[in-house]
Amino acid sequence: MSIDLLQPPTHVPPSTALRISQQAPTILRNTSGFRLPYPLSLFVSTESQELWTTQENLFLACLRTGDDKSALHCLEKLTERFGGQNERIMALRGLYHEATAENSKALEEVLEGYVETLEENPTNMPIRKRTAALLKSLGRPAEAIQTLVALLDSSPTDAEAWSEMAELYTSQGQYYQAIYCLEEVLLIMPNAWSVHARLGEILFRSCSNLAGGNGDLLKTLSESMRRFCRSIELCENYLRGYYGLKLSTKKLLDVYPKSSKQSQAVSDPATGDLAPPTLRSIQRLHELATGKLGEMVRRGSVGERGWNDYDEAELIAARELLDRDTQPIER
């Protein structure tokens, strides 16, 4: 339980969040505890870093599962400790108001509150991020992107904001900008395998509306494939990486023969871009990805030890991809 509570909330699957929030009343009662009378309390400090991390994560889990009462309780405790002017607390309070807002008018009011806070103190990054997130959930991605652009202008080393912007651009179909944002994320965290895979995915998606010649298509596809390779290199058994590798190699195999004549022209030393991979290595990578995916689906669905951490939805998608491949053979 306590281990779940110490993890960053984004990694907590819904079922765990529900379990945590069901225990909220117990945890709240236990942690409130009793304190010694005044002079003696100076000698004993039961406060630890974990306590407040727990409170914050409990707060988020309660909001996710609709237990607003416990959430408010957590928030009050945090406010009591850190003060209402703490930037992080302000963001959490905003989150609470967003979650309990009845209609879009209430949300607009919350948004106005954010704007006012930012006018007072433009360096309040958590509130800025909340503004962008709220605009996104209000269905105004263009404004959300503007907010993020302003944020990133003053704080260009914020990987979280860059990747959020990449997601927003992707949802708008602006793949070029999304790729730029993800590259920025990689400059900050060069070993983030999930970002490598995500970049591969977006490169792959951007192929679909590439109207240019085969050379461009081949280049983007091989770049995408290499991104997936890198993500697997960094994290073995990364299901998303193998999924993308299989998709991209399959498409590359489709495209490859047609453009084999131009392959010399594509490897352009002037811009320094890499030459497309050889047909042989594409085929081998495709085989490798298929084999690995099969293994993962097999072991993951049985829940074998060490293989049971895969997301249910990802396993289903992988199985579906494998089935799509085998169907023509069965007929």
Binding site: S154, E183, L186, L187, I188, G272
Partner: peptide, 20 residues
């Protein structure tokens, strides 16, 4: 932070393509 961005670009330049 902009200065830090420059440092990041220098140290992690291998993560992005030559043209980028």
């Amino acid at each position: 932070r902009s200065l830090l961005r420059g440092v990041n670009l220098r140290t992690n330049s291998h993560a992005i393509s030559p043209s980028s």
